[in-house]
């Protein structure tokens, strides 16, 4: 039997909103250690890696490892039926055809059950090596979302250039160009407002706005975002999910023809 309970559905609601633009379906790998999802978007340009540790759940039971293929569009619709304060329980039996979502109101006066059919999926699983990145930028997630949105007006791609002076985001198009520079913050009262740059070597990479604007849908999950970059390898855009796990997006850089 598989059963996982979160005291507040808000986290799971935000996770679904953070992946639904990129993934229409995905396999949820459930084991003793928690729930993991690794899936490429339909165009196979980006990769989503989600990790929810079992110890972050209020209750977690997984008697045997399960791979459950879920329709993300349907799952998003179901999670939208939960109030943020509702308790959410995911339940499935061994060799399941279905998964059940149970939402319980804080007063326990409302109990809603939604059953979703699982799908059979053949998925490529990619091995992501541990990488030392040339630049790691930590910055407020809302600021990153704002920059992606603002620069998307000027072109289809955003160039991120990171040096010891700071990080520069720029976009160029037929009607003009724009660039936004962020310096490392010297001192901040609140850690979540800090811009922190860990640079070994300067990096300049260009990424498609379309994907960056999908990644920033994870902004409600965490006040800070971590961008890890090295020349000629995919960007890693990471958001912590409270004390329970993280979501990482990998995006292939644009390269000169």
């Amino acid at each position: 039997m598989f059963e996982a309970r979160l005291a507040q559905s808000a986290i799971l609601k935000k996770v679904l909103e953070a992946v639904k633009d990129l993934l229409s379906e995905a396999t949820f790998e459930c084991s003793d250690s928690g729930i993991m999802v690794q899936a490429m978007d339909n165009a196979h340009v980006s990769l989503v890696s989600l990790n929810l540790r079992s110890d972050g759940f209020d209750k977690f039971r997984c008697d045997r490892n399960l791979s459950m293929g879920m329709n993300i569009t349907t799952m998003t619709k179901i999670l939208r039926c939960a109030s943020s304060e509702d308790t959410v329980t995911l339940r499935a039996w061994d060799n399941p055809d279905n998964i059940i979502f149970i939402f319980e109101s804080p007063s326990k006066e409302k109990l809603a059950e939604y059953e979703m059919k699982l799908i059979n999926m053949d998925q490529e699983h990619l091995g992501i090596p541990e990488t030392m990145y040339s630049c790691v930028v930590k910055m407020p997630s809302a600021e990153f979302a704002r920059i992606c949105k603002d620069l998307s007006q000027f072109g289809e791609a955003i160039t991120i250039a990171c040096s010891k002076e700071g990080v520069k985001f720029s976009a160029a198009g037929d009607y003009g160009n724009a660039n936004i520079k962020l310096a490392q913050t010297a001192e901040v009262d609140k850690e979540e407002e800090a811009v922190c740059i860990d640079m070994q070597e300067p990096v300049k990479l260009t990424f498609a706005c379309r994907y960056l604007n999908s990644f920033v849908k994870a902004t409600p999950l965490c006040a800070q975002v971590k961008l890890s970059m090295s020349a000629d390898v995919p960007l890693v855009c990471e958001y912590s999910i409270g004390e329970i796990g993280h979501i990482r997006y990998y995006l292939a850089p644009k390269i000169d023809d």
């Binding site: 340009v45 490529e124 990619l126 091995g127 090596p129 791609a157 260009t206 995006l251 292939a252 644009k254």
Partner: peptide
């Protein structure tokens, strides 16, 4: 111009 390789060309298929 710029182009883009698929993400799987950067990571090995398990």
């Amino acid at each position: 111009g710029k182009s883009q390789k698929g993400i799987s060309s950067y990571f090995k298929v398990k």
